[in-house]
């Protein structure tokens, strides 16, 4: 299924241990990421799902060493890529920090590109800086990369400014830049959220093809369970800066055990079913400036008991999955 060899598949391409990030905001200290660990193997696509403010993007920025030191109150954790391990989450020069092993593609591709430079100039700059290529070879390599992301008229796109291209085309360019250094892991942070659904399908298909061809691992972050179902083989569900459930995609979607995962799945509207998505999750996500004791989901949870409000449940492995809940639901099907 993947180009990666068996041995490469077994070892983690990226592993993150006990990542914690507190950020300084105008209104106080935000406990954005509160101890998460995850791993992705070569050739694997891992999905991280969660709503706004769940900490999924901050966790990825921290993993890549891209957090702005100005706003970080405290950050700790362990990031391992292949044989290299980083203990400093905040780094002075993000540009050189974790590349070329890790690369990231952001949600808003048009904003991520420089509006006053042509696509070609931006791509050749990066190639020249990183690989010391001269202008001619850098441009040739840029064309190759645009071909790799299935842009038909690469020459025209190289001479275009970002505003002359569609959102989908800009996202292809971003992916081309991200894979230019042949990273081991590509992090895609809501890569299709700003795109139309037919363009989203094209971009997701492209990411899959790149994985198949290169054996690159992909971490895809999304709030859309449909995107996660289409792409990921392993899924982490985040809530309030923690992973509340992790499981192989099949198990998670067939039988979510954490009440939050279950509620999220139930309230996701589907095009293949008539029944009204049942039961909106009452209330709103917690204020991340205040850490309350107990489970962060307890105030919105229908099964919450006194214990849930007092003690924070740890992420406990059970079979192929792990759940952080005192009263996991479901279990109709054994893993």
């Amino acid at each position: 299924m993947t180009a990666a060899s068996d041995t490469a598949r077994d070892e983690a391409a990226l592993s993150v241990g006990d990542l914690r990030v507190r950020l300084r905001a105008r209104a106080g200290i935000v406990h954005a990421v509160n101890g998460i660990s995850f791993a992705v193997r070569a050739g694997e696509i891992v999905g991280i799902v969660g709503e706004s403010g769940s900490g999924k993007s901050v966790a990825m920025m921290a993993t890549l060493g891209l957090l702005d030191a100005q706003i970080v109150e405290q950050a700790s954790g362990l990031v391992t890529v292949g044989a290299r391990t980083w203990r400093d989450i905040v780094v002075p020069d993000p540009w050189t920090s974790r590349s070329p092993e890790l690369a990231i593609v952001f949600q808003d591709a048009i904003a991520a590109l420089n509006p006053v430079l042509t696509v070609g100039a931006q791509m050749t700059d990066a190639l020249a800086a990183r690989h010391g290529l001269a202008t001619g070879p850098a441009r040739a390599r840029a064309r190759e990369l645009l071909d790799a992301v299935r842009i038909a008229d690469a020459a025209r796109v190289l001479d275009s400014y970002p505003h002359q291209l569609s959102g989908g085309m800009c996202q292809r360019v971003m992916i081309a830049i991200a894979i230019s250094a042949e990273p081991k892991v590509l992090v895609a942070d809501e890569p299709t959220t700003a795109l139309d659904v037919t363009v989203q399908a094209q971009i997701l298909d492209l990411l899959r093809r790149i994985r198949d061809r290169t054996g690159m691992a992909i971490v895809i972050i999304s709030h859309d369970l449909g995107v996660i179902a289409r792409m990921a083989s392993q899924v982490y569900v985040m809530y309030a800066g923690r992973i509340v459930e992790s499981a192989p995609a099949g198990a998670l979607f067939a039988d979510p055990r954490h009440p939050y995962s279950r509620a999220l799945l139930q309230c996701s509207p589907r095009i293949d079913r008539d029944d009204r998505a049942s039961g909106a999750i009452p209330g709103a996500p917690p204020d991340m400036r205040r850490r309350r004791p107990g489970c962060a989901f307890a105030p919105r949870c229908t099964q919450a008991t006194a214990r849930c409000g007092a003690e924070e449940p740890a992420l406990i492995p059970a079979g192929v999955r792990s759940v952080a809940c005192w009263h996991p639901v479901g279990g109709g099907r054994h893993d």
């Binding site: 569609s166 989908g168 037919t198 989203q200 369970l225 995107v227 099949g250 979607f253 589907r270 095009i271």
Partner: peptide, 26 residues
């Protein structure tokens, strides 16, 4: 094409679905 592009939150269904890729751009 529009309906086939919308992802369904069920990996079992997604694995067997036929996606119609639209040619080019609008």
């Amino acid at each position: 094409a529009l309906l086939s592009a919308v992802p369904i939150p069920d990996p079992a269904i997604e694995a067997t679905r036929h996606h119609i890729e639209l040619l080019g751009e609008v």
